[in-house]
Amino acid sequence: MKAPVIPANEPERLHSLQESGLLELDTSPAFDRLTRLAKRFFNVPLAMVNIIDDQQLIAKSVDGEAVTPYPRNVSFCGYTILSTTALVVVDTLRDARFADNPFVIGQPGFRFYAGFPLRLRDGASVGTLCIFDYAPREFTDTDLSVLCDLGALAEDEFAAVSAATTDELTGLFNRRGFNQFVRFTLSVARRRAEPLTLGWMDLDHFKQINDQYGHEEGDKALKVMAGLLRASFREADLLVRFGGDEFAVLFADTDEQGAWIAMHYLTEQVAHYNERKLHPWTLQFSWGVSEFDHNRNDQQQWLKKADENMFTMKQHRGLVR
Rank of each mutant, 00 (worst) to 15 (best):
Y213R: 01
K223L: 06
A189W: 04
Y213P: 00
V104N: 07
N174M: 07
P102Q: 10
Y113Q: 06
L186P: 06
L222I: 03
A152F: 04
F285W: 04
M48V: 15
E268R: 13
C130V: 04
L25I: 11
K305A: 13
V67H: 09
P7F: 05
T282I: 02
F247L: 14
A226R: 05
E157G: 13
V146S: 12
P71C: 13
F311I: 00
L266S: 03
L283C: 01
P71G: 08
K60Q: 01
A164I: 07
A47H: 01
M48S: 08
A3L: 05
S290A: 15
Y70F: 14
V146M: 13
W281Q: 07
L222C: 14
E65W: 02
G78P: 02
L23W: 04
G171N: 14
L34A: 01
E217D: 09
Q56F: 04
A221Y: 00
G64V: 06
G288Q: 00
H264Y: 05
A66M: 08
L153G: 00
D133A: 13
G199V: 10
V240F: 06
L186K: 06
C130F: 06
A248C: 14
V62N: 02
E216M: 08
G109D: 09
V89P: 07
L37E: 01
M263P: 15
R36H: 00
L118M: 12
E155P: 09
S83M: 08
L129M: 13
S61T: 03
K220T: 10
A154V: 09
Q315W: 01
G288L: 00
A306H: 03
V62G: 00
L238I: 14
L14C: 12
D26T: 07
C148F: 04
T166C: 06
A163P: 07
I52D: 05
L22H: 08
Q284M: 06
L118W: 03
H316I: 10
K305N: 14
T185Y: 07
K314A: 01
E157I: 08
P280H: 07
M201S: 08
E235R: 12
F285M: 03
E256P: 03
W260I: 11
A262G: 14
L198Y: 05
A96R: 08
G227P: 08
H264T: 12
C130E: 09
D133C: 11
D143N: 12
A262F: 07
V104K: 01
N179I: 04
S75I: 07
E217F: 04
D91H: 02
D26L: 10
G288K: 00
V188K: 05
P108Y: 05
F116I: 15
E291N: 10
T165E: 13
E217N: 09
D211A: 09
V5I: 03
A259M: 13
S83A: 10
W260F: 11
P71A: 12
L239I: 15
Y70A: 15
G109N: 07
D91K: 01
T197I: 04
R137T: 09
F41G: 03
G243T: 02
H215R: 06
F233E: 11
K305S: 13
I131V: 11
